[in-house]
Amino acid sequence: MAGEPVPDQREAVVSVKEAAMRYGHRTVFKDVTFDVRRGEIFVILGGSGCGKSTLLKLLIGLMPPSAGDITVLDGDWAKLQGDAKRRLLTRIGVMWQSGALLGSLTLAENVELPIEAHTRLPAAARALVASAKLGLVGLGDAAERLPAEISGGMVKRAGIARAMALDPEILFLDEPSAGLDPITSAGLDLLIMSLARETGTTFVVVTHELQSILAIGDRCIMLDKDAQGMIAEGDPKKLRDESEHPTVRAFFRREAM
C-alpha cells in the first residue's frame, strides 16, 4: 500500500453530487461532484465566467441547482423550510465579494446583526461578542466606524467578522483577495489560515488568485467554462506540479491559451 494516498476519514460537511446549473439553454456547469471535509480549507477555483460564484450560491442555498444534490451539514436546502432552514443558516457564515456590509450601520452593529436575529443574548453580550470578533480580525479600533470610512481590505475583514458572528461550522468566502494589494491579500490569507487552525472552522473559498490558492488551499476543485464543469480536483500544489490537463497547467503557470 506504500505510496497510495490514505483516504481522509474526516466527515464530509458539504457534499455535492452531480450538480448542474443551467440558465435556459445555456449550461454553466454539469456533473460537478465533490465533498468538503470538516476543518479543511477547500478552494473552488477557475477562470472568469466558469460558474464559481454560481456554485457558491448553490452551496449557501440562494438558488436550487438545475440537477443533482447538494447537502450542507446533512441538510438539503431544497427540502428545508422554516425553522430547520433558519437553524442551518446559523451554522454557516458567508463573506461576500463586496463585503456587503450595511452602509448605515457601524462595523460593530453589522457584526451584532446576526447575533440579534438568532439569539436572545442581551445588548451588552452582543456588543462584547462583536468586539471579540472584530478584535480577532484586527479591527478592534474600527468598531465604531461606518463601512464607507474604511479601506477595501478592512471591509473584507469586517465581512469575515460578521460571517463568524454566530461561530459557524463552515465559512464561505467569495473572492476574499479580489481587488486587494499583495500585502493586504497575504494578511487576509494568514488570517484565514489562523482562523481555520484555531477555531477548527471549515472554509470554502471561491477565488482565482493563484497565490492565495497555493498559500491557503488544502484541497481544491477547478471549474472550466469550455468544459462546462470540473476539470481537476486535489491538492493545489500537486495540481500545479503534476497535472497533465492543458487548462490546469496554463492556469497555474499563468499562460495564455
Binding site: 471579540a132 480577532l136 478592534g140
Partner: peptide, 17 residues
C-alpha cells in the same frame, strides 16, 4: 481555546473615542 480567542479579540479593542 475558545475562551482564549475571545479574550484576545476583546483585548485588542480600544475604548470608543
Amino acid at each position: 481555546g475558545a475562551l482564549d480567542r475571545f479574550r484576545k479579540g476583546v483585548g485588542t479593542v480600544k475604548p470608543p473615542s
